[in-house]
Amino acid sequence: MDSSSLLSLSTFGYLAATGAYLAAFLFKSKKAGLAGTTLTALTFLLQTFALGLRWYESYQLGAGHAPLTNMYESLVFFSWAIASFYLILEYKFKNRSLGAFAMPFAFLAMAFASSGWVDQNINPLIPALQSNWLIAHVVTCFIGYAAFAVACGIAVMYLLKDKAPKSTGLLAALPDLKVIDDIIHKSMVYGFLWLSAGIITGAIWANSAWGTYWSWDPKETWSLITWFFYAAILHARFTRGWHGTRIAWLAIGGFLCVVFTYYGVNYLLSGLHSYGGS
């Protein structure tokens, strides 16, 4: 089997995991929850293997490089990072209901990657992309994005529980609002650290490639906008005591910024600038 078919399989793995977590949440089924965790872990391993295989295949094609260099590969890594971040959260907070809100993102990233809108070929790298800083840049950015995605999912969970009348059966299984709020915050903090590292490694890469660490191109600028946005959220919480619903909405807004930085910039702004979609 080649890496593409394994990766397609992992799309279905995450879909099944999402389904199991949803079932666990909707029908209060412990078994379904366990199935969710098992499916997530197995798919995660499969995906890890597939990424390694894709790396190996690239060498066979004479275009050897880490599988982190185009839209497809970054989406796969994004979903991989979401699954690993989620597994850590589940382990730390011992609560499977988080899965119903976090794992859809891992599935959606894979589904989009496999949708046919995204070029799945292993392409040789143009000279500018041949840099270890590129690898560091993609890895750090996408770990950050994954944490923000999970924060967004958990924020939706918060809003659901907050809006619903008290003590309805379904939502009682969710963690306390306070705990959810804490998870959102911790995820954003974690994401912020990695996003900062992502912006920095990107700047160093740009400087080693063409002597300018910052040139205000739309992609860079949007990552900075996202960074300002999350910095503002952290300050609002830490020094002005914002929490709960407001922070939940901001976590969702922050993730929209991330999606726009990641994807929107290429398709909506590239027409106006020489810098295009990669």
């Binding site: 600028t221 949007w222 900075l224 906008i225 300002f228 503002a232 910039v265 702004l269």
Partner: peptide, 9 residues
């Protein structure tokens, strides 16, 4: 953040 958006559009 808002001002930076203008420059990207």
């Amino acid at each position: 953040a808002a001002a930076s958006i203008i420059g990207t559009i």
